[in-house]
C-alpha cells in the first residue's frame, strides 16, 4: 500500500519536474538574468510569484530556467558514469583476470575520496564550466557503477545462457554486449536513479560553494548561496530554490526506491 503510494508520488514528481524543465528552457515570464533595479527584493506577489532578488531578477523565472540545467547536468553525468561504468564493470566481471584486479584496485582507490571532494577537486582543475561539472560528476560516480555491474556479472557469467551463446559460436564481446549487458539493465537503472539524486545534490552543493555553472546563469545552489546574505530579510530567496531542490530530490529518491522494489525485491531498504 505504502510502497505503491510512494511510487506514484515519485513518478508524478519526476514527471512534473521534467515538464517544468522543458517549459523553463522554452519560456520564462521574465528574462532570468535581466536586472531590474527598480524592483529589488520584492516579496512574492501576483507579478513576481516567487519575489525578486537583490538585482531585481524574477526568482520564479530563475528557478524555472535552472531546472533544465540542473536536470541536464544530472542526466549527462549519470549517463557518462553508467555508460562507461557498465561496460568496464561487465568486462571486468566477465573475464575476472589481472585487468579486473587492476581496475578494481583503481576503483577502490578512487573511492578513497569522499565524492563531493573528488568532484570539487576535478572541477577546480578543469575550471568552473558547464561541462566541467558534468565530467567531474561523471568520473566521480564511475566506481559505484563499475562495482555494482561487476558484482551482477560475476553471477551472470555462470548462467547457462552464456554457455549457450558460446556453443552457438559467439565471441566474448558479442556475448557481453548482447547477453550479459541487457541482463544488467535492472540494477543499472536502479543505481542510475539513485545517482541522479546524488548528482543533483552534489551539483547544487558545488554551485552553492560557487564552483558549479558560472554566474550569471541561474542554478538552484547558486541562488541559495546568494540568499545567504538576505536570510533575515528576504526569506523567499532561500525558500523557493530550496523547495525546487527538495521536490526534485524527493521525486528521484522515491522513483529509485520504486525501481529497487521492482528489480530487487529482497532489498528492503
Amino acid at each position: 500500500m505504502f510502497n505503491r503510494f510512494n511510487q506514484r508520488v515519485g513518478i508524478s514528481l519526476t514527471v512534473f519536474i521534467v515538464l517544468l524543465a522543458v517549459i523553463g528552457s522554452l519560456y520564462t515570464p521574465y528574462d532570468p538574468v535581466a536586472q531590474n533595479l527598480a524592483e529589488i527584493l520584492q516579496p512574492p506577489s501576483a507579478s513576481h510569484w516567487f519575489g525578486t532578488d537583490q538585482y531585481g531578477r524574477d526568482v520564479f523565472s530563475r528557478a524555472l530556467s535552472s531546472a533544465g540545467d540542473s536536470l541536464m547536468i544530472s542526466v549527462l553525468s549519470v549517463a557518462i558514469a553508467t555508460g562507461l561504468g557498465s561496460v568496464t564493470g561487465a568486462v571486468c566481471g566477465f573475464f575476472g583476470n589481472w585487468v579486473d584486479r587492476l581496475v578494481m584496485m583503481l576503483m577502490d582507490a578512487y573511492m578513497a575520496f569522499p565524492s563531493l571532494l573528488l568532484a570539487l577537486a576535478i572541477t577546480t582543475m578543469i575550471g568552473p564550466r558547464r561541462y566541467g561539472v558534468v565530467i567531474a560528476l561523471g568520473l566521480t560516480y564511475l566506481p559505484t557503477v563499475v562495482r555494482v555491474v561487476r558484482s551482477v556479472v560475476l553471477s551472470l557469467r555462470e548462467k547457462e545462457f552464456v554457455e549457450a551463446s558460446y556453443a552457438l559460436g559467439n565471441t566474448s564481446a558479442y556475448t557481453i554486449f548482447r547477453h550479459i549487458l541487457p541482463n544488467c539493465i535492472g540494477p543499472v537503472l536502479m543505481i542510475a536513479s539513485s545517482l541522479m539524486a546524488t548528482a543533483l545534490l552534489t551539483e547544487s552543493a558545488l554551485s552553492f560553494l560557487g564552483l558549479g555553472i558560472p554566474p550569471p546563469a541561474a542554478t538552484w545552489g547558486g541562488m541559495l548561496a546568494e540568499s545567504k546574505l538576505f536570510v533575515g530579510t528576504a526569506i523567499w530567496l532561500a525558500v523557493f530554490p530550496g523547495l525546487a531542490i527538495i521536490i526534485t530530490l524527493l521525486g528521484f529518491n522515491l522513483l529509485g526506491d520504486a525501481l529497487r522494489d521492482r528489480f530487487d525485491p529482497r532489498m528492503n531498504l
Binding site: N6, K228, N253
Partner: peptide, 25 residues
C-alpha cells in the same frame, strides 16, 4: 513504520546547506 520511512525519504531529499540555512534562520 510509514512515518519513519517518510521522514527518512524527506531527510534524504533535503540538501545539507538548505537545512543549515533553515536552522540559521
Amino acid at each position: 513504520d510509514a512515518a519513519i520511512l517518510t521522514g527518512a525519504s524527506l531527510s534524504q531529499s533535503i540538501p545539507g546547506f538548505w537545512m543549515a540555512l533553515a536552522l540559521i534562520l
